[in-house]
Nucleic acid binder design. Structure first.
Lengths: 221, 221
DNA sequence: ACCTGAACACCGTTCAAGT
DNA sequence: ACCTGAACACCGTTCAAGT
């Protein structure tokens, strides 16, 4: 798949410090030790070169993060658009999008403000989503804000997925916040810890229901 | 208000490096130069002490960020809960919450995973919100996931509010992403830049509509 | 064209020494 | 109890020198 696959045998296969090699090494470092461990020094070591060598191929560490983000975008599932009803396709997209970036939360603030120009895979996702929305009957001028709204929810949920199980542990605070404490207890049931999935499900249900109601109204105009 | 206000005159007023003084200085540095400028050295300089002096009052830089976050929480408007209908109160809360942290986006990943224990102001906000939800008829066990869902949307929107105006500039990409490009053009109207408010409004409308529909169903059970 | 090794200007944090 | 100044172990990045 990668570049260099269909080169002649005997030819030195591929540049050692290709974009793909750097991105793969970065993902390796990140998967191994998280984003704290992702330093230029570690990345260089994983590639077997001196840190300064990287700067022949990359303008900054931030560049590498953008490459990683672009790479992850291929894991987002847009297969529902064009084949499934709008709500089903949107739900599938949202779930996979959130799952991918829940494991890369430090990238979320980066993606949220990254221009799509120069990010072809990200753009391809947007194109598939926009086409699916248009086909489902969303007027062309309504698509961008609705997609942005869903994305905001997805990004926030990806961050929330990293909350510790004790985030809502109100231990000695029942006197100070009785209703909230009761809400926590009622939610957790029999001493269960907090899991963020229930929040994501509730929000996705509500948002899709609200949007579908709007879509119905738009269709009947 | 702050500590030391009701001390006797003539007594040296307040510790120089009180929590309040450190938090205020931090907010000052952040407002002046953003989160990149917020270093321990700059914070110490603003307080007129050596960097190492801070560590008599703070365990880490992260501690100060948590103090700042707690301080900002007092700006979140929960006044609608208990006085206004659920949808109005929720909308007011969401708008102010998003506005406060849109100007402190680097804190968003911090809040999203911060335990409420030891954060009394944050807890006070949750208590007001939970009480408002309960009074509006939300069953006690449904409150936490619904609040988490709204918060996820709010946090994502706070990040999105910092997107550059050219985030969706598809310049030469009309051939590669025709539908998405058309959606951008139709949304931007007459050459207008992207503003994230439309996305926030669309999402908040949809989510509140979806939740209100669910609340109606719950009430009729 | 692309590498190395030294250097630079920072980081946050620790700690002995002072008062 | 709380400060200073020196030191530590890092950061990301630059650049002259090599091939």
């Amino acid at each position: 798949m990668g570049e260099g696959t269909h080169r002649r045998a005997g030819r030195p296969s591929t540049k050692v410090l290709s974009r793909q090699a750097i991105t793969d090494a970065a993902l390796d470092v990140i998967e191994h030790g998280g984003y704290d461990a992702f330093t230029v020094a570690k990345l260089a070591r994983a590639l077997g070169v001196a840190p300064s060598a990287l700067y022949n191929h990359v303008r900054s560490k931030q560049d590498v993060l953008l490459w990683v983000q672009e790479d992850l975008m291929t894991k987002v599932d847009v297969s529902g658009f064009g084949t499934e009803p709008w709500a089903v396709a949107t739900r599938r997209w949202a779930l996979s999008y959130r799952d991918v970036f829940a494991r890369h939360a430090p990238l979320v603030p980066v993606i949220a403000v990254m221009p799509v120009a120069g990010a072809p895979r990200t753009l391809a996702v947007y194109e598939a989503v926009a086409a699916g929305f248009a086909e489902a009957g969303w007027p062309i001028g309504t698509i961008v804000p609705v997609v942005v709204a869903l994305e905001s929810f997805i990004f926030g949920s990806a961050l929330d997925a990293n909350a510790p199980a004790d985030i809502f542990d109100t231990a000695d605070l029942a006197g100070v916040s009785p209703v909230f404490t009761a809400a926590i207890d009622a939610f957790a049931g029999s001493g269960g810890d907090y899991t963020p999935d229930a929040g994501f499900d509730a929000g996705l249900d509500a948002m899709i229901a609200g949007l579908e109601a709007r879509l119905d109204r738009l269709r009947n105009d």
